[in-house]
């Protein structure tokens, strides 16, 4: 069963990445999807990032109650945790629900209402027209959201630290600047690009091959969220193993 779906997924991707019939029409769709996926997800990503940064700062401080440990280490740990793990992984898991579910249900509904059949009869490569713009839009906008999430997370930690008295602003800044290695940003972005591709393509695959009616659209959306979340976590492990 796994190999059947894996093979079908690869063939699906082959169809998705064939030459578009009309670049202008595809470009319009890419811009529309960038708005839906990127701009539409900004709010939830901002809220999550603010709380992630704040909680990381407070919990790190709680676990480092010792006079032997310099306080600015809270800044170092918050910075590294937010950049390398929380922003790329947690944000993408949330987006698997928001964007992945939406992609699968949109394509699933189009399938059961014969809209995809209508495209195919017109001679349009339906998987290319419907899925390629979603993948491109995801791979462009989600990394942007993750970078914003990194800044927001660290900034919220910077605000919450002095506010709760766990660390002063100067100590936090000193920690954020200490032993700075830009390589972690590179790793985080590699993760984000891989996760974005997995999220959009797996969700599209689940939605595109929906069979049945309204109930099955729900099943496809659930599968899309579950499979993309599990594969994001698996890919997270692989990237960490290979790049760190």
């Amino acid at each position: 069963m796994f190999f059947y779906h894996f093979g079908k997924y690869l063939l699906f991707l082959k169809n998705v990445f064939t030459k578009p019939e009309n670049l202008k029409v595809y470009w319009k769709e890419i811009v529309r999807e960038m708005n839906l996926i990127g701009v539409g997800s900004f709010g939830i990503i901002a809220v999550i990032s603010i709380f992630l940064g704040a909680v990381t700062c407070i919990q790190t401080a709680y676990q480092l109650v010792s006079n032997l440990i310099p306080r600015d280490i809270i800044g170092v740990i918050t910075r590294d945790s937010v950049i390398i793990e929380f922003s790329p992984t947690i944000c993408l898991l949330v987006l698997a629900g928001r964007v992945g579910g939406s992609i699968a249900s949109e394509l699933g509904t189009m399938r059961v209402t014969e809209q995809i059949d209508a495209l195919e009869i017109m001679g349009v490569n339906s998987s290319g027209y419907l899925v390629l713009p979603k993948i491109i839009a995801s791979v462009i906008t989600i990394p942007m959201l993750v970078v914003i999430s990194m800044f927001l997370g660290i900034f919220s930690a910077y605000l919450i630290g002095p506010l709760t008295g766990v660390i002063s602003g100067a100590e936090f800044i000193s920690g954020v600047l200490r032993d700075w290695n830009p390589y972690i940003v590179f790793v985080a972005l590699i993760k984000t690009y891989i996760f974005s591709f997995l999220l959009s393509s797996i969700s599209a695959y689940q939605g595109f091959y929906t069979k049945g009616g309204a109930l099955d659209v729900g099943v496809s959306s659930t599968k899309a969220v579950v499979y993309s979340s599990v594969l994001i976590l698996f890919a997270d492990y692989l990237v960490a193993q290979v790049l760190l």
Binding site: T113, E114, Q115, D117, A118, I121
Partner: peptide, 10 residues
């Protein structure tokens, strides 16, 4: 092609 449900792009 005219589909039973019309299959218009909603």
């Amino acid at each position: 092609m005219l589909f039973q449900s019309a299959a218009l792009f909603d």
